[in-house]
Design a protein around this nucleic acid. Structure first.
Lengths: 209, 209
DNA sequence: AATGGCATCTGTACAGCGCTTAGATATGAA
DNA sequence: TTCATATCTAAGCGCTGTACAGATGCCATT
């Protein structure tokens, strides 16, 4: 655990402590897990006093919100990239795989993202409202591959179902009970694809299985 | 917040403090939410000193495990009851609805259940191994309504997909973004059923939609 | 019936937590 | 150059989980 800057290089005023705190939080999160992520530990990691963060964040939750927001940004970017590498209806599968792989590779960050969302009982705008957001990406991809854009309710239902399915799988994929199933299917990637194919990710059923 | 017994009625030795602590924890959980569930608060609620719980639980996590286990027991019972009230393939939908409704009605308990599971990276035996467990109930119901019991991999895949889908929906159903969709569908119950129908709950596709 | 072992519970203590307040320090505008 | 203001530190409050020593009362043995 190294601080962001050496003691001599940091002036009394940090320069961009907000940024440094979020970075420190993500570093701690990856190294020590979510339970170790205390405000004091983040301040320590950033090399400042325990009270310093309060000049940049109202409280601990607001710091975690900033960390979570970065997570959503990264997830959106990864999904966009995954969509670009696939063609046709496989794009939807690619989105789902990218989503679940992100959760597998960043379990602590993923947890912080949804904890923050649950505490305010809503997903961040990044997921739901923005153009080019992850959720709209799912919707748009469904339209591109056969979903009826005029049937708003059905379209949104399909998007919600896909999102819920991917989230459920993302949270369960780490459980040890599924290890033997992963082996039977030839690996974790195959397991993830197989489960996703059993769910309502595709607007046109002939693409299942 | 009232203690379990009045001061005069409780002798120095409690009798069944373990039980009383789990009850107190569940009472606090329902009343104040998961963040208020400290070991000291539980001890306070049960009317004992902060150190008393350590004679019945190794640490806080072990107390929460006991609370979570009760949650799984209740969930299993509710699902069994729901299955009994439905006939044919609707039994699977009934299981899903019962699952999601339990999560909606006991959000704090549901959260404790999965937090405990995630911390040890596995679901409790109640879900996976036991006869009459919730997970086996899903498997068995699938077999009863058309799934091939000999194709073990496919059967388990379908069960996992169903469980993941229900869990994902359970966690997302509370988000405010879906309120307008609930209204459009005529209520929360309809929303839950509609989303479940879009997912892989049914082993035979003709029962979707 | 008396005794003593033992599980159970209390009291006290410690380090770490989130957060507040008061005061020190550096920056940038007047 | 001066000074308001933003940023940081130091100290402290009440809370937390957990450890330990000692008080208490149940139960089996005698």
């Amino acid at each position: 655990m190294s601080e962001a800057k050496s003691a001599e290089s940091r002036p009394y005023h940090h320069g961009d402590l907000r940024r440094a705190l979020v970075d420190a939080a993500r570093r701690l999160l990856e190294a020590e897990g979510p339970t170790a992520l205390s405000l004091r530990a983040v301040a320590r990691e950033a090399g400042v006093s325990p009270a310093a963060p309060y000049h940049h964040f109202k409280d601990k939750a607001e710091l975690l919100d900033a960390v979570a927001q970065e997570g959503w940004d990264i997830l959106s970017a990864l999904m966009a990239e995954a969509k670009g590498t696939a063609v046709g209806p496989h794009q939807l599968t690619a989105l789902g795989i990218a989503y679940v792989c992100f959760a597998r590779d960043n379990p602590a960050l993923y947890r912080v993202m949804y904890d923050a969302a649950r505490d305010k009982e809503m997903l961040p705008d990044e997921v739901q409202d923005n153009k080019d957001s992850a959720y709209c990406m799912v919707r748009d991809t469904m339209i591109e591959h056969g979903a009826n854009p005029d049937d708003e309710v059905h379209l949104e239902l399909a998007s919600v179902a896909a999102w819920c399915g991917a989230h459920g799988l993302a949270e369960m994929a780490g459980f040890k009970q599924f290890d033997h199933l992963k082996e039977a299917l030839g690996g974790e990637r195959q397991f993830l694809e197989a489960v996703l194919n059993h769910m309502g990710l595709f607007p046109n059923p002939q693409h299942r299985c």
